[in-house]
């Protein structure tokens, strides 16, 4: 039962990672791409972490997984902001076509 739940969670997480990558490739400019990276990949990681936590089943491992999720989530939101700020200030995100 636990294996099934874990498999479903990890598969769904992978779908979100694929969605984030598709968004990264298809979206028109740097800002829209950042939306795809921060949001879709963030949930993808959370679902995969949750699935792995179901499999790991020791409190220590679950705690470590939660820590990893927290630091990655905080880092991806901050990096997204920094990339967007750089793009705005340097004009790198403006398309000239």
């Amino acid at each position: 039962m636990q294996d099934v739940v874990a498999a479903v969670l990890i598969t769904t997480g992978t779908v979100f990672f694929i969605a984030g990558t598709v968004g990264l490739l298809r979206f028109p400019d740097i800002f829209c791409r950042l939306h795809a990276l921060t949001k879709a990949d963030g949930l993808g990681l959370a679902l995969i972490a949750l699935g792995v936590a179901f499999l790991a089943a020791t409190p220590g491992a679950v705690f470590r997984i939660v820590l990893i999720w927290f630091f990655v989530a905080a880092a991806s939101a901050t990096c997204g902001h920094l990339v967007a700020r750089y793009a705005r200030r340097s004009g790198a995100g403006v398309r000239h076509d």
């Binding site: 969605a19 984030g20 598709v22 968004g23 979206f27 949001k39 879709a40 949930l43």
Partner: peptide, 14 residues
């Protein structure tokens, strides 16, 4: 909210 945000952006990507 983060599920809503991710589903929204995933649907747009596809």
């Amino acid at each position: 909210q983060s599920v809503r945000g991710a589903v929204d952006v995933a649907l747009r990507a596809f």
